[in-house]
Design a protein around this nucleic acid. Structure first.
Lengths: 204, 204
DNA sequence: AGTGTAGACGGACTAGAGTCCGCTTTCAAA
DNA sequence: TTTGAAAGCGGACTCTAGTCCGTCTACACT
């Protein structure tokens, strides 16, 4: 620790100046409150800036863009999921067979999506595929890839990991739930089933 | 025919006025040319309007929004794919077993994506999930759903269809190809494999 | 304490998407 | 041919994301 970390890591930030750190927190808190209160789609960056008591430029300096801010917020929420994966009890934590761990993980992700669909929509909507290059997606992908490799050593797990995660795209989730009226449970089951099938195939 | 069709169908348009039809074509042609020449990400709606010799309002009246215009363009491109599905030779056309037809279809979609990734990005980026409510996605989904049902009558094919299509999201495709440097072929194979596994499972 | 400077700040500015509404055109019916 | 009005037109306008750059400040080093 102490060295530069990525722009979206909300933890301790290297040699960040005191005022910068204070503003980072203020922005994150303000954004979190506004998003929670009004829904992520109905909050503008200027409103966040005003609520946080900083200029708009400061937000962009810290978080690159709107979706970067959303990612930073998610990154916080995500810590508990990461924890569950690394040290939690099976089936999501270590100890269960890979296929079951994958199913548990995908299920957990679906739950996360149910709670934060709008925020994740914003995060994923960043132009130029920022989302896929960010921390959060990278950690999901890595986890899935490792589990897949355990279940199917000979497959192209690096690529399949992305295929397994794709059904959890936030916009798709919202469409299924809000436009088509599917129960969250039903969506979760389908996503888990798809993932399980990809992981559970014979040898390839 | 002759009755009102959906706003994105570029074919004959019900009781459309002559000037309206002329403008529709002009817009579609101008957009098509500009997109081809400069890449869909680098063309603004105003530029299209100017090139087509119409006001910007006309574009929005006809196509709802930027992504609606992209969808209309795709809808044209898509006709040949639809034709191949309905009357073409196996394995993509009728005659082959469902699993093989699905694999062929997903493969064809991946090829389409390779050729029109930027356009599809624009189409999918419409706010509020317009893409998922549009013609093009609906036709893909229906086709996949039917094939899945044939292969796995007892599964929740309506929902699994979306899961099978998800890996072909344009932004993901571009990320894999442009950021991660994967060969189109490799992406296609992975998408096809994932789809096949979902379709090919025992009984559920 | 004094000071040089990397880094941070903020708000005016730009650019592009999407809306609005008064004017014009088509066309069907008389 | 006239005519009424539904449909279409277009460009000024609004709203928001994201950039730019002159000013300011924390803090490391003396």
């Amino acid at each position: 620790m102490g060295t530069r970390s990525t722009p979206f890591d909300p933890g301790t930030h290297g040699g960040e100046r005191a005022d910068a750190a204070r503003n980072r927190r203020a922005i994150l808190d303000a954004a979190s409150a506004l998003f929670a209160e009004r829904g992520a789609d109905c909050v503008t960056v200027d409103q966040i800036a005003e609520a946080a008591g900083v200029g708009k430029g400061t937000i962009y300096r810290r978080f690159t863009d709107r979706s970067g801010l959303a990612m930073a917020l998610l990154d916080q929420t995500d810590r508990e999921l990461q924890h569950a994966i690394l040290r939690g009890p099976p089936p999501i934590g270590p100890g269960a067979p890979a296929g079951e761990r994958l199913a548990a993980f995908i299920g957990a992700l679906a739950d996360l999506l149910e709670r934060h669909a709008d925020l994740m929509s914003v995060a994923e909507s960043g132009s130029g595929g920022v989302w896929y290059r960010g921390n959060v997606y990278a950690s999901y992908r890595l986890h899935v890839e490792v589990l897949l490799r355990e279940a199917r050593p000979d497959a192209d797990c690096a690529t399949l990991a992305d295929m397994v995660l794709a059904p959890l795209a936030a916009d798709l989730y919202r469409h299924l739930r809000d436009d088509r009226g599917l129960e969250p449970e039903r969506i979760r089951v389908a996503a888990v089933e798809a993932a399980t099938l990809v992981a559970g195939a014979p040898t390839a």
